[in-house]
């Protein structure tokens, strides 16, 4: 296969292979999707949030989870980065700390797919770095 060098190359390849994309319709309500926010401030990025976010985007799609992955700023848990916030449809958001790719894998399998709680949850009333002594 020739190297993809331009958007027209990419368009052509997709047409040749007749690849279609399962588009999320604009009307699809966000509350029906699993929403994952990855904290991507300096503390998160320096701790490996980029790898965690790439893993989450790839793995959720591969495992057929209807999810949307976005980024957010610092949530104040700099000592527990990378941190992610997962909101299951109809449930309260849950924040997990120290989420490397291994932990992210566990969160997908056990919490998102299985509905079971896993280690690493940061309680909502927990101290942020601002209040921690």
């Amino acid at each position: 296969m020739n190297k993809i060098k331009s958007l027209s190359d990419l368009k052509k390849i997709r047409e040749e292979q007749n690849r279609s994309i399962e588009l999320r319709s604009k009307g699809e309500a966000a509350e029906k999707l699993v929403q994952v926010k990855v904290a991507m401030a300096t503390c998160g990025i320096a701790s490996g949030a980029k790898e965690t976010m790439e893993f989450l985007m790839d793995s959720l799609e591969k495992r057929g989870v209807n999810a949307v992955v976005t980024q957010t700023g610092c949530m104040g848990y700099c000592y527990a980065e990378p941190t992610i916030e997962v909101t299951m449809p109809g449930k309260e958001p849950v924040v997990f700390g120290n989420v490397n790719t291994q932990k992210a894998d566990e969160i997908i399998e056990k919490y998102i797919k299985g509905g079971a709680l896993v280690d690493g949850i940061i309680p909502v009333n927990y101290e942020t770095i601002q209040t921690k002594e």
């Binding site: 958007l7 368009k11 690849r19 588009l23 999320r24 985007m57 799609e61 949307v68 992955v69």
Partner: peptide
Amino acid sequence: ELELEDLQDAE
């Protein structure tokens, strides 16, 4: 150009 709403698709 690719007539997409977002770039979430893995491929």
